[in-house]
Structure formats: structure tokens, C-alpha cells
Simulated scan of single mutants.
Amino acid sequence: MNENVLDLLLYLFENFSLPDIGASGEVRDDLGEAGFFPEEIDDAFDWLDATRGDGRARFAAPGSDAVRVYVGPELMVLDAECRGYITRLEQAGVLNAENRELVIDRLMALAEDESATAELEQVKWVVMMVLSQAPDQDMAYARMEAMMHADTPGAAH
């Protein structure tokens, strides 16, 4: 996985409202001051742009009886644990089919090559970022956030 771009995305996620963020000079300056390089900043903004309206239009919403089959590079990047977690989120109603496809697409975009395997924590954060920008997904975002806190050892109940 492209750790530098993922680190930058997590920094943006923790410090800014992703739906409201633009490629403004102020945000870019802040990222530069935080130690990120211009190429990484460009890659992160490209990644974010693909999760917004234009990125969503690339996926035709699968039917309710459709079955997701992972192929080729997806099997290499997303191990059984990651694929199982994505399926669990879909079955729990956290991800709909369209957002599932976008999560998979964005994880594949972070993979530097087919030998880069995603880690479960990376999958969780990508899901959070996708849901934070998805229209009408506030409840799914809240459920995912609660699941992440519940999965954290030592989390208060």
C-alpha cells in the first residue's frame, strides 16, 4: 500500500472535513508544513476526487441479488481477512453495494502494485473516508465508527 498517501489521507481525515475540503492553497500549505511532499498531496487529492460524485458514477449499482466475486489483482491486494470484513460490513448494512465497490476501488488505487497487501486497519479507514463523503450515509458512518471503537482493545463500553 502507498503508506505516504494513506498517511496524508488520514491526516486530512483527522484534521479537516473531507466533504468540504478542496484543493485550496491553504490546505496544501498546511499539508506541506506537516511534512508531506507536493506529489503526495496531488495523489491524495486525486484519490479524494475519485470518492466524490465523479468516482461514484463509474459504478453501476449492483442488484440486490448480485454476488461480489473478487478477481486477479483484487485477490492479491485484499486478503481473505479484508474481503471477509468488507462482506461483513455489507451484510451489517454499513456498506451498500455501490459504496462497497468504491471502497474496493480506492483500496486498489492505494496499492502500489499487486504484491502490496492491504491491512485490515487500512480497510477500516478507507471505509470511513468513503462513508464520510457518501451522500445520505450518516447512519452508516456512525455504525462504522462504533464498530471501529468496539474493535479497539481497551475501548470503553
Rank of each mutant, 00 (worst) to 15 (best):
D46H: 07
T51N: 09
N15H: 14
T117M: 08
H149A: 14
G32W: 00
R52V: 04
S17R: 12
D42F: 07
D43A: 15
T51E: 05
N15T: 08
R28V: 15
G55Y: 03
L95Y: 01
A134M: 10
A23K: 14
E98L: 15
D136N: 15
D105N: 12
V127W: 02
L107C: 06
E3S: 14
A156Q: 13
A23N: 12
D49T: 08
E112V: 13
E74S: 10
D42Y: 04
A44I: 03
A92Q: 14
M148I: 12
N96E: 06
R52S: 04
M1W: 00
S64V: 12
P19M: 04
M139Q: 12
A66R: 08
E14L: 15
Q122D: 13
M129G: 07
A156Y: 12
A66N: 04
F36S: 03
F16I: 02
A97N: 05
I41G: 02
L10G: 05
N96V: 09
D65L: 13
P62N: 08
A155D: 01
A109G: 01
A61H: 10
L6V: 05
S132H: 08
S24L: 02
R88H: 09
A134G: 05
G63P: 03
F16K: 04
E98Y: 00
E98I: 13
M139S: 09
L75P: 00
D43I: 02
K124Y: 08
D20Q: 15
Y70D: 01
K124R: 12
N99E: 11
A142W: 02
A146P: 05
D7I: 04
L10D: 10
H157Q: 14
D65V: 12
A80P: 07
L18H: 01
M76V: 06
A66G: 01
E26S: 13
S17A: 11
Q137C: 09
L6D: 06
S132T: 08
D43C: 04
P38Q: 00
Q133P: 01
Y85N: 11
L131G: 01
R100F: 06
S24Y: 04
I41D: 00
V94K: 01
D30K: 09
R106Y: 02
E121P: 06
L95I: 01
A109H: 05
A44H: 03
M129H: 04
L31Q: 01
L75W: 00
G93S: 10
R28F: 01
A155P: 00
D46E: 11
A50M: 11
V123S: 00
A61Y: 10
G35V: 03
K124C: 09
E114G: 04
H149L: 14
A50D: 12
Y85M: 08
A80F: 10
A66M: 05
V5M: 03
A66H: 09
L107D: 02
M139L: 12
L95M: 02
E112F: 07
P62V: 09
E101M: 15
A134P: 00
D136V: 11
F59T: 03
R56P: 04
N96T: 06
V67K: 07
A60Y: 07
R100L: 11
E26T: 06
A23S: 15
D138G: 04
L110W: 00
R56G: 05
E26I: 05
P153D: 14
D151K: 12
G25Y: 11
V127Q: 02
